[in-house]
């Protein structure tokens, strides 16, 4: 999922970075002081999740958990994922500094999109709807991120069909695992600490400053 250094053409990198900066601006603006502890913890979760490795096929995939971050934090997913990626790049050699912007966009944008879209379902009072929302909110962002990576590779000149299939197939187990994990997380949070998922408690989702 992390695009390494030296693969991408400059315009793709610059475009990704510009989109990431825009997302970061909205995300940081939406982040109130009450959200900072949650954001930091999720950043730590994201940072460590990439080490949980799913050996499959010719390549290796790892957990992303951007769905979890988007479901809980909405727009703040941008700064959260940026911090996690920055430290992964510096300490683990995952991705790299030149691809930081592009990688941030690829992982955070789907998180925000699905997080905001599924928010009403997560907070529904129906007993089973949050399960569905958690399941979709966990898996779909990973799938969308894989597609974005494939598009970025295509724009930089690699053969699209092959790489796209490879990226998506390589992440299929991750998509399934994360769907289930986030499904249980959402149910668990609704039970233990519903205010974490409550839109009233977090206006991060509307992208407006407090």
């Amino acid at each position: 999922m992390h695009i390494s250094e030296g693969l991408m053409s400059a315009p793709v990198l610059a475009g990704g970075a510009a989109l990431a900066v825009a997302g970061m601006a909205v995300g940081l603006k939406s982040l109130r002081s009450e959200d900072i502890p949650r954001a930091s913890i999720l950043s730590a979760v994201f940072f460590v999740a990439s080490l949980i490795h799913v050996p499959i096929g010719p390549s290796s995939a790892h957990l992303v958990l951007n769905g979890l971050i988007g479901t809980i934090m909405g727009w703040a997913a941008f700064p959260i994922i940026f911090m996690g990626l920055l430290l992964q790049g510096l300490l683990f050699n995952f991705g790299g500094l030149t691809t930081l912007g592009l990688n941030t966009f690829n992982m955070a944008a789907p998180a925000v999109l699905f997080g905001v879209m599924l928010r009403p379902i997560v907070n529904s009072q129906q007993p089973w709807l949050p399960w569905v929302a958690g399941f979709l909110g966990g898996g779909l962002p990973v799938l969308a991120s894989a597609i974005l990576v494939a598009i970025a590779l295509y724009l930089s000149g690699e053969q699209f069909k092959f790489v796209a299939l490879q990226v998506i197939a390589g992440n299929l187990p991750v998509i399934i695992i994360e769907s289930v994990v986030v499904m249980f997380c959402v149910k668990f949070l609704k039970k233990v600490c519903p205010e974490i998922l409550d839109p009233g408690a977090s206006n991060a989702l509307e992208g407006v400053s407090a």
């Binding site: 900072i36 930091s40 940072f47 996690g84 430290l87 300490l91």
Partner: peptide, 14 residues
Amino acid sequence: GGLGWLAGVFGLAF
């Protein structure tokens, strides 16, 4: 080390 950094950034932001 990474988790320590995140804790530090958290403190700074707070």
